[in-house]
């Protein structure tokens, strides 16, 4: 089979993407613009409300903080796992991915038990007399971030371990001989080389965190809505499908814009032409 006719093999997958991704998107988008009083009326209405801006801000902040924490926690762990022998690395990778095998609802209920007023953390702090009354952790933004970090850390580690394993240790040795101390080597030599892996990890975690539903629903409660829970509320509780669609499209735009920014930052770190 030559190259030209091989292209036809892509048709089923292409059709799949077209039918199941783009058509529904267009289906969602079109009604939001069908207004007698203006093309962008629904969007303008949505963006006029300060409450909605609060939700957008919270969604963005939670995703951003989650990505940062996951990156800071994931990088050292990945550097350690990536430098192990292949067999050890495979076992560790499996252990890292293990939490992902549990059901999301079950996992989040576990966090309710840990974070609640009668939870392990409060009981522990009370027993040590560090606090006088239980802290409000559950049903706050912090609770959503904790749950998201737990959920997405394996994804970040998984996308970094491969890049770490491919690093040539001699490059770090060369840096050391040229007078670079270990911290300087980490920031100027190791992290820039990992930029493509870090970018992939950040995009996956950011997109996941922006659109996560179960975690903010269970750990954030009704007073700490994010865009995804707001969509659910609009569609399922209020039956306002058009508004839900507006929010969905705004969510997509914010996500896409954020990824573009991440890409720029990554290119600043690693300017190799192959990464262009």
């Amino acid at each position: 089979m030559n190259r030209k006719s091989a292209v036809w093999l892509l048709v089923p997958a292409f059709m799949g993407v077209l039918v199941f991704t783009f058509f529904p998107l267009i289906e969602i988008a079109i009604p939001t613009f069908q207004n007698r009083n203006g093309f962008f009326l629904l969007y303008a209405q949505f963006l006029k409300s300060s409450y909605n801006w609060q939700v957008i801000g919270r969604t963005f902040l939670i995703a951003f903080v989650t990505v940062m924490i996951v990156l800071i926690l994931g990088l050292p762990i990945s550097l350690w796992i990536g430098r192990q022998k292949t067999a050890v690395r495979q076992v560790l990778n499996l252990l890292i991915l293990f939490p992902m095998l549990t059901n999301a609802v079950v996992r989040n209920f576990a966090w309710i038990i840990i974070l609640g007023h009668d939870g392990i953390i409060n009981k522990f702090l009370l027993a040590l007399h560090l606090i006088k009354s239980p802290l409000d952790i559950l049903y706050t933004d912090a609770a959503i971030i904790i749950g998201s970090v737990y959920l997405f850390l394996p994804i970040m580690i998984n996308s970094l371990v491969g890049s770490v394993a491919e690093l040539n240790v001699e490059i770090e040795e060369a840096a050391a001989i040229l007078g670079s101390n270990p911290w300087h080597t980490l920031f100027k030599v190791v992290i820039p080389q990992l930029a493509p892996g870090i970018l992939t990890g950040c995009i996956l975690v950011f997109a996941g965190s922006m659109t996560a539903y179960t975690t903010p629903q269970i750990l954030g409660g009704n007073r700490h809505l994010v865009l995804s829970t707001l969509i659910y509320q609009q569609a399922m509780t209020l039956g306002n499908w058009k508004n839900a669609s507006v929010i969905a499209l705004i969510l997509i735009i914010i996500s896409a814009f954020s990824m573009w920014i991440m890409r720029r930052v990554s290119h600043h770190l690693d300017r190799r032409p192959s990464n262009a």
Partner: peptide, 27 residues
């Protein structure tokens, strides 16, 4: 190692792949 004032050339060259020739030499 980073406080010794030595130069080393490796078999794999071990150049910094994310830096240009100029920046490699300037490191």
């Amino acid at each position: 190692v980073y406080k010794r004032n030595f130069g080393m050339v490796f078999q794999s060259y071990a150049l910094f792949p994310h830096l240009s020739v100029f920046e490699n030499v300037a490191f």
